[in-house]
């Protein structure tokens, strides 16, 4: 198995708070990593560091043995680390279709795409196929601002997926949607991503979702990884039960 991502003694502090406290981890190609942890445990900070939004205070990050420490979001995306967001980041004044088309245009054109039209019939067709795959084609012409949370989440993930990511980091893909929607969203996403050769890491509070979709679980507590195991082992771990599951029952919302 080839290692796709490696973190070495990763530290990140915000003043007195350690959001990442000596994180050492290796992720292999093809894994589906579920990340759990209470609010403020350092899950999103980890995603932010890997995807270039935050630079670690110290430590190194490697992507296929290439040092990516200190990359910015654009560079990280270009080499194949893409992400979705806990609060979907869309172009609020554009339609669902526009949003995905722009994402596709960026992924497919060069560094100075100022001449070739974005909206070709061929690209529009593929765009609709992707929308269909994510089951949001019926919202094609709706302005993003007015979409429901579930559709936003799916669109956000669809946009992250078109840059041919090697690694896709989903920050709480099911937060803010009804319990009934959670599984259908995860089903749609996992099915859609199966057609791409991509390693997935997702942050999640719902242990049922974790045990159903993850092949490996990382439990964060206080900036540290307190468990790294198969779902059933991780969820049975005493520390995890005490520090992670105990709290998430009461506070399932964003951190």
């Amino acid at each position: 198995m080839t290692a796709i991502l490696r973190a070495e003694s990763l530290y990140k502090s915000f003043g007195a708070v350690n959001a990442a406290d000596n994180i050492n981890i290796t992720i292999d190609e093809g894994e589906v990593i579920g990340v759990i942890g209470a609010n403020g445990a350092g899950k999103t900070t980890f995603v932010n560091m890997v995807t270039g939004y935050l630079a670690p205070t110290s430590g190194k990050l490697f992507f296929y043995d290439r040092d990516i420490t200190g990359f910015n979001p654009k560079d990280a995306t270009e080499i194949g680390i893409c992400r979705s967001f806990q609060i979907p980041q869309l172009f609020s004044s554009g339609t669902t279709f526009d949003n995905l088309m722009i994402a596709m245009g960026i992924a497919e054109e060069g560094t100075m795409p100022f001449w070739k039209p974005l909206a070709t019939d061929e690209r529009a067709k593929r765009c609709e196929e992707i929308l269909a795959r994510y089951e949001i084609l019926e919202y094609r012409d709706q302005i993003a601002q007015t979409l429901s949370q579930g559709v936003r989440k799916l669109l956000d993930i669809a946009m992250a997926s078109v840059h041919n990511p090697k690694m896709l980091m989903l920050d709480e893909p099911t937060s803010g949607v009804t319990a009934a929607e959670k599984f259908s969203i995860m089903d749609i996403v996992v099915t859609a991503l199966k057609q791409q050769d991509v390693t997935i890491l997702f942050v999640e509070h719902d242990m049922e979702i974790i045990s159903r979709y993850a092949t490996r679980v990382l439990a964060f507590y206080d900036g540290r990884i307190i468990a790294d195991a198969k779902p059933e082992d991780a969820l049975a771990d005493e520390q995890v039960r005490q520090f992670v599951i105990g709290e998430t029952v009461h506070a399932p919302v964003a951190g």
Partner: peptide
């Protein structure tokens, strides 16, 4: 959403 543009590469 400038951040999203960056995150699209």
């Amino acid at each position: 959403n400038e951040l999203r543009v960056e995150y699209l590469g």
